[in-house]
Nucleic acid binder design. Structure first.
Lengths: 139, 139
DNA sequence: AAATCAATTAACGTTTACGTAAAGTGCGTT
DNA sequence: AACGCACTTTACGTAAACGTTAATTGATTT
């Protein structure tokens, strides 16, 4: 059943926790282009994949314009040499940017971890105090 | 000289490539609070550190409200147990979120790398074609 | 047939994160 | 004294990314 042909708009909103407004907006922006059955939208597996890419890009703080650029890199078909070169450049730019974000994440995780341990220590101290009190009271 | 006491607003805008408007806006939002010498702002090393945290958070796609939350975790001083517990929970939430972003980045880097190689292959083919042509022409 | 339900289009509204004048202030230089 | 320059406050403007009604429209259930 994972091989189904089409997804309805509500199926996608349920799966990815987005609103119909969002999906229609992405369609206006030409990021998705579902087929139609009458007036109803039928999303293809390709649309679903693109939606995943969009949401992943958004989690990483890319604007929709940037997400569009990245997605366009994926389904490129430029045969001309100059265009291929410029594509390589843009790939390099995005790669550099992502590596920076990667460092940012590791730093932030490290710092949060430090805070976590210091808070844990504080909590342990509070617990010890209570326990000593209990002992003193003979309970 | 890295130990200077204060930074002027233009020094910070130069170092971090932000506008004065941005720094003043962050001050309005209570993310920075520089001292004053008359009407002029004097940013402390603490302000500079906070600015770094803000910009790093932004690169990772956090809103200023979220950045504020994260920063507040760093300079916490809540003695009460319930608050410490809730702080631990929030740290865990942010950690989970950052780990998701981490996976997102690795996936995207992997995909970009694949596109890069396939484009490189295409470029190599174009080069070979030209070279064979040269050989045929005896040059 | 009436009613309910999921989907549609159209259009104005909202939040975030600043941009962009406009008008003024203090201070070192000419 | 006049000037330029960096800095200031105040306040309206704006782009992005949807939210939120409103008014319809089939389709299906009763």
């Amino acid at each position: 059943m994972t091989d189904r042909r089409y997804y309805t708009i509500t199926e996608l909103t349920a799966e990815f926790a987005v609103t119909t407004r969002t999906l229609r907006f992405y369609e206006d922006e030409n990021l998705l282009n579902p087929e139609r059955q009458g007036r109803k939208r039928l999303y293809t597996p390709r649309d679903r994949t693109r939606l995943k890419l969009i949401l992943r890009g958004k989690r990483l703080g890319f604007s929709l314009a940037e997400v569009r650029e990245i997605i366009e890199m994926y389904d490129h078909a430029p045969g001309e040499k100059g265009q291929l070169q410029r594509l390589q450049d843009r790939i390099q730019d995005r790669t550099t940017e992502l590596e920076q974000k990667h460092r940012d994440i590791l730093e932030t995780l490290e710092e949060l971890n430090q805070v976590k341990w210091s808070v844990q220590k504080r909590l342990d101290e509070l617990d010890n105090k209570k326990n000593r009190k209990s002992e003193t009271l003979g309970r």
